[in-house]
Design a protein around this nucleic acid. Structure first.
Ligand SMILES: [Mn+2]
Ligand SMILES: [Mn+2]
Ligand SMILES: [Zn+2]
Ligand SMILES: [Zn+2]
Lengths: 148, 148
DNA sequence: CAATAAAGTGAGATTGATTCTCAATAAAGG
DNA sequence: CCTTTATTGAGAATCAATCTCACTTTATTG
């Protein structure tokens, strides 16, 4: 049994909830993706593999995965919420191009200790890191200059 | 003439746009607020002062203020976009309590040089800083423990 | 293996922030 | 004034996210 299955089961059982078939399918899909995803992408990913789960169930399951610490809501783009699994993934910065939508990740190693220090100083329990920089990637910046 | 008026006028004129009465009212309201605000708050702020501007115009003006560098879209909370004016305000971190909604700001002085360095390395033009940490403030964390 | 209770699901309706449309109005420049 | 161009307001439209509720799974018990 994979670790994320064990953790999710534990989380659910502690609250008298069940690891049902739809939830298991969503969990597997989430960990099969290695990129940021939104509900629509997850929905189609499941359909492609003939694993039909309703959108409503996806919308209901994502908060459970967030609460259990397996995924994180880390971006908002094009009026949609994007998630990514975080189990085993170090926190990072997101560089989001407002024009082409590309998302680049860079290390937070230099910064995380400082952030955690501030957190403990004010006794703040961090649940989600949303450390996002929006602007123009170099390609799109070059294009804007060309076309004035 | 205040600096933000001058800057906004310059921005508009460079694009053959006009500093109209509604836009001027919105601009003044934005700089009269010293906190994060959303469209609804701005709308009511204006109404209170008998300065009626339609929501549509507010929604149309905010992107202009963002583009001109006077304000920033820095938070999303309770399904709403929140802005704050940034002219003369140093960038900062946001600590957002998911339970009571409180937003605390802390300095970015230690971190900003590192971020800017990474930005120039990858030639990324930053337009908005959305450096947000979500979780529980100490008060809400204490409450959760009390009530198990 | 039923039978029962509790938790979960899917389809479709609903909500609500944001965007769009378009006729009417305001600003700029002669 | 007059003309041109930009802007506005009211209400309709959009669409991600949430909610409702009858039906289905799952777990438990005898
Ligand atoms: Mn990421
Ligand atoms: Mn702020
Ligand atoms: Zn780009
Ligand atoms: Zn709180």
């Amino acid at each position: 049994m994979k670790e994320y299955e064990r953790l999710f089961t534990e989380y659910l059982e502690a609250r008298s909830q069940r690891l049902t078939q739809p939830r298991r399918l969503i969990l597997e899909a989430v960990f099969s993706l290695h990129d940021h995803f939104d509900v629509e992408q997850l929905y189609h990913r499941l359909r492609i593999h003939n694993e039909e789960v309703s959108r409503a169930t996806i919308y209901r399951t994502l908060p459970l995965l967030v609460e259990s610490g397996l995924i994180q809501h880390s971006l908002r783009q094009a009026d949609r919420d994007f998630y990514e699994h975080i189990l085993g993934h170090p926190q990072h910065l997101h560089w989001i191009c407002r024009k082409c939508g590309t998302v680049v990740e860079t290390s937070l190693d230099m910064v995380l200790p400082l952030i955690n220090k501030v957190a403990s100083q004010q006794r703040f329990q961090i649940e989600d890191y949303q450390l996002n920089l929006r602007g123009l990637c170099w390609k799109c910046a070059d294009n804007e200059n060309e076309n004035q």
